[in-house]
Amino acid sequence: MRPRTLTAYGFLTPYLLIFLAFWVWPIISSFWMSFLNTRRLPWTFAPQANWGRLLVDPAFANALKNTLIILVVQVPVMIALATVLAVLLHSPLLKARGLFRFAFFAPVVVGEVAYAAVFRLMFNYEFGIINKLLALIGIAPISWTSNPTAAMALIIIAVTWRWAGYNAILILAGLQSIPQDLYEAATLDKVSKTRQFLFITIPLLRPIILFCIVLSIIGTMQLFTEPFLITNRGGPGGATETLGMLLYRQGFLSFNFGYASAIAYTIAAIAMALSLLNMWAGKERR
């Protein structure tokens, strides 16, 4: 190896050591752990104890179902909303643009606990503003945290509120990179604004929207904060327990690290599979 290259690796060594010890090793180690029965000491090699259990565990099936429902409803709704928001934020008619952009991005900056507390207050059965507003239009109060369907809706609303602005800012960057003269050319060709949006804007935003969808799939597969903090640890009765919650329960409440590792790998595999599927489906046909 050339001395220059060696010197570079010399400087990189402290980082690489930490990277190996705290990043690469845990990944390998947890993969190995997923094959061990960790319910009692000593840990023994027993693949069916974790991987086999995944197939028959009703708690896992429930968490997987909940996670996928949230994913299927929340991601498309949020991306559609983010696209609309981005177009509005891009509009030359909008005044105080910087302020609005900050406002929509702000939820990402707000601490998770504070945001969860505010949502719990807003959706409180007796005192929450949401039920008060519903009452104004003649809808009976909804028990957001004790009705299973309402609790799922609450999770979806909360996650959407938190991440729609973030995705809108990403999509806005994509919008800004579309040259203005494409629209001018289309305008001279008598193509209506709606058709310009459908036939020029959307196709050109495709890569960035795809990117947002992949990010959202990964994020939602790991969903933990909202069911933990807003719907009382996946309540009512596990109705909003996600894979992230189940992993937490198994790893840090039951200390069953082997099973938790298997769940973690399952989450990663599903997220990766869905993302690849999505990228394949969204690829431009040549």
Partner: peptide
Amino acid sequence: AMVFQSYALYPHMTVERNMGFGLSMN
């Protein structure tokens, strides 16, 4: 009809589609 300095071609459309886009949209 206008020809722009940057050409303003639709990057996601073929040459054929670029030329016919305005017509078929109308």
